[in-house]
Amino acid sequence: MIEINELHKSYQTGANSLHVLKGINFSVKEGEMVSIMGSSGSGKSTFLNILGMLDEADEGTYFLDGKPIRNLNEKVAAKYRNQFLGFIFQSFNLINYKTALDNVALPLYYQGVKRAERTEKAMHYLEKVGLSQWATHLPNQLSGGQKQRVAIARALASDPKVLLADEPTGALDTKTSYEVMELIQKINDEGKTILLVTHEDDIAHMTKRIVNLKDGLIIDDSIVTQVRADEAQRKAAAHV
């Protein structure tokens, strides 16, 4: 699904050049659930942004579902983002003057789907994340966990090949984090490829594979046994 070879990225800050990614080789197969870990400054967010076509690499090759991602103009990039990728952000990034339903429907709007069909599809995904009765609420009327679930529904709405999550639980408490992770695991169970960036160990262990980044290089890439979020939650509750 994702094929990356010798990926380099550096930032110009004044006279200095900051080499953030120093040659990453990485691949993901369909249906995988991968977490990218690393301390701050390790380049994990930059890496995810490049995967998401929100940023461009300086060097190296990147194939997404067999298509080369290189020097795309914004129009094509926008189309690819819409078709292939779903984004989940730490700060949710919902549009605050749109209802939950309209937020979920937004990628479909950019796909050119008709209004009636859009609403129907968006409603389906809201149901999937258990928020159908909140459809007409604005983001500021929802809790953090609910907001993130709306964002997940939005990421799913265009039926993308890959889901990219940048610290999806970073702004949530442990209980809510586990609930969100439970949802993401369920989505992966249905076959969706998921990549998530996190610096929390427990969250990383809820995926099936952990990639460790340090100073712009992959230092460790290993398959782990997935901890189911609902079990972790039960355990935590029993502990209290």
């Binding site: 983002r81 819409n82 549009i95 950019y110």
Partner: peptide, 16 residues
């Protein structure tokens, strides 16, 4: 700007 970034992440083309 942030909203525009979100819209672009969701697939809005520049001309859109």
């Amino acid at each position: 700007t942030n909203e525009i970034g979100v819209r672009r992440a969701l697939g809005a083309s520049p001309w859109n």
